[in-house]
């Protein structure tokens, strides 16, 4: 075996001296800046809290009426204006809205991801697509729905397109990130056998991608469900969000709000169970 010219000599003794004087982290400017920012923000928050209170505000009364409303919502849920069936249908509408937008979004995003992963695409294309998607992502989904409702009018069309739009931008990013994690050796190996690009994507990229594809798409479905409720209220897109908006802000019927909140919670639990099963399935592969 050949030895290097200057073998590294290790110190034979541990450095002496008090241990506490040795910092565990490098003291850099970033940490100081973060700390200062947090302190300034705390001071501002504390000083503005009293100013925010309305003059005729009585804390004790407010707390009592808040607890009263909570009690009505969660302990006395009941329906007066709407039937349970119509609420179920409204919930179904919201679920379908979330499902449709996630499905369309994930298909489109898959192709954008292929065109913007380090493994397969040229740098210029990656930069172009990823920065375009970043801009779309920066604007919240609800705002996109409102923007599209200028074109299509308030309602379901604007909701579908707006939510899909943001889903594509989100999923493109996470799919492309998952593809980036694929070892470059895998692509090299397929190219070394003379495979064409379509075959490489189908035979090498997709098999590795499936678990993260499923879990990210599912997370996006949960996000889209929440957005579908918000959009139902904000853009009149129908569904349980619209009912929630009417009961809470129009009829002030907190008994009904309670029923809807329980319905949404029940569906959230179902989602959680499904996502757990899904994780188990993909992990056991």
């Amino acid at each position: 075996m050949i030895k290097p010219d200057n073998p590294v000599t290790l110190p034979t003794q541990a450095p002496t001296g008090p241990h506490f004087s040795i910092p565990l982290r490098f003291r850099d400017r970033r940490r100081v800046t973060i700390l200062l920012t947090l302190m300034v923000l705390s001071v501002i928050t504390l000083s503005t809290l009293p100013l925010m209170m309305p003059t005729d505000f009585k804390l004790s009364e407010a707390v009592v009426s808040f607890l009263e409303n909570i009690k009505i919502m969660f302990l006395q849920p009941s329906l007066t204006n709407t039937s349970f069936m119509s609420l179920l249908i409204a919930l179904g509408q919201s679920i379908l809205l979330a499902f449709l937008t996630t499905l369309i979004g994930s298909v489109i995003a898959f192709f954008f991801a292929l065109a913007s992963t380090r493994r397969l695409a040229p740098t210029a294309l990656i930069l172009g697509i990823q920065s375009f998607m970043a801009v779309i992502r920066a604007i919240p989904t609800v705002l996109w729905v409102l923007i599209y409702s200028v074109v299509f009018g308030l309602g379901a069309n604007a909701a579908v397109i707006g939510i899909t739009f943001h889903s594509v931008a989100y999923l493109t990013k996470v799919y492309a990130d998952s593809m980036d994690e694929l070892s470059p050796d895998i692509i090299d190996t397929m190219q070394a056998m003379g495979l064409k690009k379509g075959a490489i994507i189908r035979q090498a990229v997709i098999p590795y991608l499936i678990p993260s594809y499923l879990s990210w798409t599912f997370i996006r479905f949960e996000i889209n469900f929440a957005d579908a409720i918000a959009v139902g209220a904000a853009a009149g897109a129908g569904g349980i969000g619209y009912q929630l908006f009417m009961s809470s802000s129009f009829y002030f019927n907190f008994h009904e709000v309670g029923v809807m909140v329980y319905l949404i919670m029940a569906f959230a639990i179902v989602l959680e169970v499904i996502s757990y099963r899904l994780r188990m399935m993909t992990n056991s592969h």
Partner: peptide, 19 residues
């Protein structure tokens, strides 16, 4: 499946995409 990848180089893209 891995062994069969060896013959994909001489086959059409469609064959590769649908195994």
């Amino acid at each position: 499946e891995n062994v069969l990848h060896g013959c994909l180089g001489t086959k059409s893209n469609l064959a590769g995409m649908f195994s």
